[in-house]
Simulated assay, not measured.
Amino acid sequence: MALDSDARKIFDLILLGEDVCLAVNQSNSFKVECGELRKRVSRFLEMLKNLLCFITSASTSLYLRSLNCMVAKLKD
């Protein structure tokens, strides 16, 4: 089912974002730049988690082609 695939992609991005936040917390240099990156990633993670909840509970099918393009670019 496509929904499972889309949900898995979003979940994988959430895990990647959490890894980025962990790496930022462990960094010893570029504190200001890393802090800004962490803020942006954390905000993006909130949005991804909300989207994941929405698509897994949606009773209608969703058009997620643009999401698939975004996921591919973010993973790169």
Rank of each mutant, 00 (worst) to 15 (best):
I10F: 05
R8L: 14
K9P: 01
D19R: 09
V71G: 00
N68A: 05
R65Y: 04
C21H: 04
S29I: 04
I55Y: 03
E33K: 07
A72D: 12
K75L: 07
L51T: 06
R40M: 06
L16M: 13
M70S: 00
L67P: 00
Y63G: 05
S61F: 09
N28V: 05
N50H: 08
I55L: 11
A7N: 04
N50Q: 12
F11I: 07
F44C: 10
S29E: 08
M1V: 11
I55P: 05
L22Y: 11
A2D: 09
G17M: 02
N25A: 10
D19L: 03
L67I: 03
I10Q: 08
D76Y: 00
L3P: 07
S5Y: 12
R8W: 08
A7M: 04
F54T: 06
A72G: 03
E18C: 02
D6W: 07
M47T: 12
L13M: 13
E46Q: 14
S61M: 08
K31V: 08
N68S: 12
L22K: 15
L64P: 02
C69V: 06
A58T: 02
K49N: 11
N50K: 14
L16V: 06
M1Y: 05
K49R: 14
S5L: 10
M47K: 15
L64H: 00
V20D: 05
D76G: 08
N25W: 06
G35H: 01
F11H: 14
K39C: 05
L45K: 11
K49T: 11
G35E: 03
L52F: 11
D6G: 00
F44L: 14
R38W: 01
N68W: 02
L48H: 05
N25K: 14
S57L: 06
M1K: 12
L3G: 10
R43A: 14
N25D: 15
L74T: 02
E36V: 06
L67T: 01
L16D: 14
K49C: 09
Y63L: 07
R43V: 05
T56S: 07
V71E: 00
L45M: 10
N28G: 11
L22H: 10
Q26P: 00
F54S: 07
K31L: 11
G35C: 01
E36L: 08
D6S: 10
F44Y: 13
E46A: 08
C21Y: 02
A58Y: 09
F54P: 02
S5W: 07
F54W: 07
V20E: 05
L62K: 03
V41N: 04
R8E: 14
M47E: 15
K73G: 01
S57I: 02
S59I: 10
L3N: 10
M70Y: 01
L37G: 01
